[in-house]
Design a protein around this nucleic acid. Structure first.
Lengths: 260, 260
DNA sequence: CTTTGAATCTCGTAT
DNA sequence: ATACGAGGTTCAAAG
């Protein structure tokens, strides 16, 4: 439980520093609202002038500096960073997050701290359910007819030497079929499938391509049409229905006759 | 200034609700650390079980639910969402962020609030300096010789019917050159240039391709080599130097003899 | 270790 | 509105 959540209001540099050092030592979840400037050195370089921001330090080393607007942090460090706090020569608190590979460094120069809080967040392993590309692929394997009547799947995640094809099988007439699954298929998705087909052709395999997605861009459809690639649009609702029915009474998925 | 930062510790549902409603009405920057469960419906669907999390609500409608680990929020809404707070039938606070296009909804069911804070973050327009693809492109236009001696640029951001070529010009021998600029060039970057070249070829223009980047993947180099595309690696330091010298004494960039 | 592809990617910009 | 490309993308999986 986070009942041990502690906080300090308008701390002096000394108070803030000891608060942060203690929280960092306990690998706590730390919040800090402060007027600060920020400097980043690494894959790029940025210098951010003075302003009010939210700093979040997580136990896994994730480090976020959030500005007053926008989804993305204005500066950050991904998980795994080493976070330290110390005093500068002129008595200001500096919070620093560094990463070794690649070398990156974010430094926050605190000018005035409004509020700092720290505590341990308790979170049980969370069953997070979602409707992803993976779900769509699963639904296709459960009910291949949604792609094309009589189609028959074999290999999934088949390495083609240039990425991997999502699903490979044969259609009713026995022709090899490569299925590429996307949530939203744009041209790059269609190009991906085309790369697989081209590669297979190099191997001497003549194969059809089918794109399955919740939606397609015009570019994707045009690209596909020009290369005789079929586009199958599926509604999320249908996928949900298939997955839910499957969960209630899981039949057997039969994988056979794939490429060998 | 954020001196008007207010906060409440362990508020009751009623206290929390009025705190949030007031803060939302003032379009304040809002923080909330609470035990909660989260539900998302929209482009995907997720259900997140009960746990301690940080909720951030920004004045532009950005909405973030952060878990105890990781760079990315576990649930969110990008800027532009409409955020409301209300009581459920059983007296719990629900915070909801909705977006119209595409329709998306995040609902946070508060079970216990540890700390809530709200205030106005003041941030002057920030001079954020960085070394981007744009910087690299600028450096190339300032000093074309870094790409190839005697090269001569004309059009920039030239529409080719399938995206746009970064820079188009002619080399010393008068051959049309298409330059694609990337920070880190992977295969997809090389493919992009190849699309332009292919398109130009369809138009009857025979052109060379040059990739300029801070670094290349092996795949990109292989792809390029197979198609006689030249790869030019540039050091960030050199770009920084060119840009800094330019800022000190800006000469004239001469654009001439592009394609017409 | 690097490479590849997904993501509720977000965000800007041009059409 | 839609589409395309950039991003310090991050992240996980696979070779």
């Amino acid at each position: 439980m986070s009942s041990k959540l502690r906080h300090v209001v308008e701390p002096s540099p000394g108070e803030l520093l000891s608060f942060l050092k203690d929280a960092l030592a306990h690998r706590a979840f730390i919040l800090l609202i402060a007027k600060c400037s920020v400097s980043y050195y690494g894959r790029s370089r940025t210098e951010l002038g003075s302003g009010d921001r939210l700093i979040v330090i997580k136990e896994d080393g994730s480090f976020l500096v959030h500005s007053k607007t926008g989804y993305a942090p204005v500066n950050w460090q991904p998980s795994g960073a080493r976070v330290t706090a110390y005093l500068s020569a002129d008595g200001r608190v500096i919070v620093e997050a560094t990463r070794a590979q690649p070398y990156e460094r974010v430094r926050v120069f605190i000018e005035h701290a409004y509020l700092a809080a720290a505590g341990t967040l308790k979170e049980p392993p969370a069953p997070l359910v979602s409707l992803t590309e993976e779900d769509l692929r699963t639904a296709i394997l459960i009910d291949p007819d949604m792609v094309e009547p009589g189609i028959h799947f074999g290999t999934i995640e088949w390495p083609v030497g240039v990425g991997r094809a999502d699903i490979v099988g044969r259609d009713r007439s026995g022709t090899v079929v490569v299925v590429e699954v996307k949530r939203e298929c744009d041209r790059s998705g269609a190009e991906q499938l085309w790369r697989y087909l081209t590669k297979l052709h190099e191997y001497g395999v003549s194969a059809r391509g089918i794109l399955v997605a919740f939606s397609f861009t015009h570019e994707a459809r045009r690209f596909a049409r020009a290369r005789r690639i079929k586009c199958v649009a599926v509604s999320p609702k249908r996928v949900m229905t298939i997955l839910e029915r499957w969960r209630r009474s899981p039949g057997r998925r039969t994988f056979s006759s794939g490429l060998t």
